[in-house]
């Protein structure tokens, strides 16, 4: 009998150990922690469902949940539409098109903190690029204080996230577009389809698996907002742009309430998980696998 070779497992070991130590075990510990009161410096104390009860009874939690949903409602369609539009735009054979593809992708690989600092200046009330343009070019007399306005703060954060990740979404859509057989478009044109009809009835259905994939990852990304929020608004004004992920950070590393933060994190996980499952169920209604 031949013994199974050990070599592949040895090569896998560093990755597996890293995954266990830095991901799987902390995820497990954090699940346990969500049922405790734990300030880190003292041993955790069993609290049963107290953290979850406190969460459900807290007006702040529901507000944060509302902000998170609103953010997802802006971010997911926003990044998908703009990403798709960019992909259609750069899906041509023009001179220097790779330059534009690279240009649109650039924000995605730029440090989020640097991005946020630049945008902070753009949105600055008195000295910002945006408001000075609104005043000087468009003659608007009293533009909003974007990051200090309870209505505009969250959309401003969403705009920066969309700007930042549209290039990545573009790349995914571009790959999908390029895998579509050109002869199908030629056939549609022969049948008298306009450019829009060809896009709507040929391109989109064939692209639907990519659309589905992009939707799932955008939804997950939308639940992980931290850096830009931290650098732009710190969740303000008065909590107007505090999302669940930011609230987890505040509770864990500013207030040192690891138990409560873990409960928030698992609630976020359950929500995103449920939505993803729901999407997989609804998939057969609109996703066409060629």
């Amino acid at each position: 009998m031949r013994r199974a070779p050990i070599t592949p497992y040895l090569f896998l070991a560093p990755m597996v150990v890293g995954l266990l130590v830095f991901r799987v075990i902390p995820i497990g510990v954090s699940f346990f922690a969500s049922f405790t009161h734990w300030n880190v410096i003292a041993p955790p104390q069993w609290a049963g469902l107290a953290n979850y009860r406190e969460m459900l009874g807290s007006a702040d939690f529901w507000r944060v949940l509302g902000n998170t949903s609103l953010f997802a409602a802006m971010y997911v369609p926003g990044v998908m539409i703009i990403g798709l539009a960019l992909a259609v735009l750069v899906n041509r054979k023009l001179r220097g098109i790779t330059f534009f593809r690279g240009l649109f992708f650039m924000p995605y690989i730029t440090s989020l903190v640097a991005v946020a600092l630049a945008w902070r200046w753009v949105f600055s009330t008195r000295f910002g690029l945006l408001n000075n343009a609104l005043i000087e070019v468009f003659g608007i007399t009293n533009p909003p204080a974007w990051l200090s306005d309870p209505i505009w703060a969250l959309p401003s954060v969403a705009i920066v996230y969309i700007w930042q990740s549209a290039g990545f979404v573009m790349l995914l859509f571009l790959a999908g577009l390029q895998s579509i057989d050109r002869t199908l478009h030629d056939a549609a044109r022969l049948d008298g389809a306009t450019a829009w009809q060809s896009f709507r009835y040929v391109t989109l259905p064939l692209l639907s698996p990519v659309v589905f994939f992009v939707m799932i990852i955008s939804l997950i990304t939308s639940s992980q907002t931290f850096e830009v929020t931290y650098a732009l608004t710190r969740g303000g004004p008065n909590g107007a742009s505090t999302t669940l992920a930011y609230s987890v950070f505040q509770n864990a590393f500013v207030f040192y309430r690891m138990g409560y933060a873990s409960a928030l994190a698992y609630t976020l996980f359950a929500l995103v998980g449920t939505l993803t499952l729901l999407n997989f169920t609804l998939r057969r209604r609109w996703v066409h696998y060629g």
């Binding site: 931290y230 608004t233 710190r234 969740g235 303000g236 004004p237 008065n238 909590g239 742009s241 505090t242 950070f249 505040q250 590393f253 500013v254 207030f255």
Partner: peptide, 20 residues
């Protein structure tokens, strides 16, 4: 830091309310 609103949480608590 929680009730006063301090550091990365300064948009909340007493700080956040006074800014209103």
């Amino acid at each position: 830091s929680e009730w006063r609103g301090y550091g990365p949480a300064d948009s909340g608590g007493m700080n956040g309310e006074l800014d209103e």
